[in-house]
C-alpha cells in the first residue's frame, strides 16, 4: 500500500514537474514589431518584468505576415505555451476561431473587449480618457492656443485618441484650435518617423506649440522635431518623457506592460474583461514643464471621470467625434 502510494506520489510529482516545465507563457507581437518604443515595446517590458521577478522564461514571436497570425497561435498552443498573450485587436478574429479548439490553453489579448470565451482574458483601455487628460495639459501649456495631433494609421482606435485629446483641449480653452493629421493609411504609418517629423513641422507652421503623437514608432520623429523646433510634445503608451528631456510635456500612459504582467502571472479567474490603466506620466524629465496647478486640474478631471460626473465621448461608440473632424 505504501509502495503504491509512493509510486503514485512520484508519478504525480513527475506530472506536475513536466507540466510546469512546458507551461512557459508566450507573447505574440503584432506586425508593428517589438522595438517600436511604444505599444509593443511596453508589452515586451511587461513580459520582461515578469521574467525578472519570477526567474521564468517566456517565448516571444514577432509576426511577419497576416497568415502567420493563426499559425503562430496554433503552434504555440500545440507546443504547450500557457498562457499566450497577444498585442493588438487584429487578433480578435483569429482568436475567436482558435481559442475554442484549445480549451486547456489560456489566451490573453490586449485592446479587445468584445469576445466572450471561457479561456480568454481581454484587456481594454479607455484611451479617450487618457487622451483627454493630456489634452488638458496641452491646452494649459500652449501659448498660441493652437495644438497638434499626429496619429499613426488612420483607424478608429487612433481617432479615439484624437477625439479624447480634442475634448480635453477644448475643456480648458474653448477657443483653442486643434490640427489633427494622420501619418498614413497603411500599417507602414506606425513606423515612419520622417513623415512624423514633416507633419510636426507643418503643424508648427500653422501655429501649434504642443503636439501629441499617438503613432507608435512614428512618434519618435514627432518628439525629435518638436525638440529641434523648440516646442512641446506629448508621447504615448510607454513613458517617453526621457526621449527628449525638457521638450516632452508628458506621456499618455497606456499600461500595456501591467496587462501583460498580470496575464503572465495569471492570478484569479481567467476569463473576463480587464480594464487597463491609462493616465499621464510625471517624472524628473518633465517636472519643470507641468506646474502643480496644472497637475491639480488634471487630477481633478481624472477623479471626476472615475466617479462618472465627467464623461468623455468615445469615438468608437458611434464612429464620430463632436469636436474634431479627421
Amino acid at each position: 500500500m505504501n509502495f503504491m502510494k509512493s509510486i503514485l506520489g512520484s508519478a504525480a510529482a513527475l506530472a506536475i514537474g513536466a507540466s510546469a516545465a512546458v507551461a512557459d507563457p508566450a507573447i505574440i507581437f503584432d506586425l508593428g514589431g517589438k522595438f517600436d518604443k511604444s505599444f509593443n515595446e511596453t508589452a515586451f517590458n511587461g513580459a520582461q518584468r515578469w521574467a525578472e521577478e519570477t526567474g521564468g522564461s517566456f517565448r516571444e514571436i514577432e509576426l511577419q505576415t497576416e497568415a502567420g497570425r493563426e499559425q503562430a497561435l496554433r503552434r504555440l498552443a500545440e507546443a504547450g505555451s500557457n498562457p499566450i498573450v497577444m498585442t493588438g485587436f487584429m487578433f480578435a478574429d483569429v482568436l475567436s476561431k482558435v481559442a475554442p479548439e484549445y480549451p486547456d490553453t489560456r489566451f490573453g489579448v490586449i485592446d479587445v473587449g468584445w469576445l466572450d470565451m471561457p479561456n480568454l482574458r481581454q484587456y481594454i483601455f479607455n484611451e479617450h480618457e487618457g487622451s483627454y487628460l493630456v489634452g488638458m495639459l496641452a491646452a494649459m501649456a500652449s501659448k498660441t492656443g493652437t495644438v497638434g495631433f499626429v496619429g499613426g494609421q488612420d483607424i478608429g482606435l487612433i481617432r479615439r485618441f484624437g477625439c479624447g485629446y480634442a475634448q480635453g483641449v477644448l475643456a480648458v480653452n474653448p477657443n483653442a484650435s486643434i490640427i489633427a493629421n494622420m501619418t498614413g493609411t497603411t500599417g507602414a504609418a506606425w513606423n515612419d518617423p520622417v513623415k512624423g517629423g514633416e507633419l510636426t513641422k507643418a503643424q508648427i507652421s500653422q501655429g501649434a506649440d504642443v503636439v501629441f503623437a499617438a503613432a507608435g514608432g512614428t512618434g519618435i520623429g514627432v518628439l525629435q522635431t518638436a525638440a529641434d523646433e523648440g516646442i512641446l510634445s506629448i508621447g504615448v503608451d510607454m513613458n517617453q518623457n526621457h526621449l527628449q528631456p525638457g521638450s516632452v510635456l508628458t506621456t499618455m500612459l497606456k499600461r500595456v506592460d501591467n496587462a501583460v504582467y498580470d496575464a503572465f502571472k495569471g492570478n484569479g479567474d481567467w476569463a473576463g474583461t480587464m480594464q487597463g490603466v491609462v493616465g499621464y506620466a510625471m517624472d524628473e524629465h518633465n517636472a519643470s514643464l507641468v506646474t502643480a496647478d496644472m497637475q491639480a486640474k488634471v487630477n481633478a478631471a481624472e477623479a471626476s471621470i472615475k466617479s462618472g460626473t465627467l464623461s468623455v465621448h468615445d469615438y468608437m461608440s458611434d464612429d464620430s467625434c463632436p469636436v474634431l473632424s479627421f
Partner: peptide, 20 residues
C-alpha cells in the same frame, strides 16, 4: 492603398468594429 483604406475605414467596415 488610399482607395482600399477609404473603403475599409469607411463604407465597408461593420459598425463598431475596430479593425480596418
Amino acid at each position: 492603398a488610399g482607395v482600399l483604406n477609404f473603403f475599409l475605414v469607411g463604407p465597408l467596415k461593420p459598425a463598431g468594429s475596430m479593425a480596418p
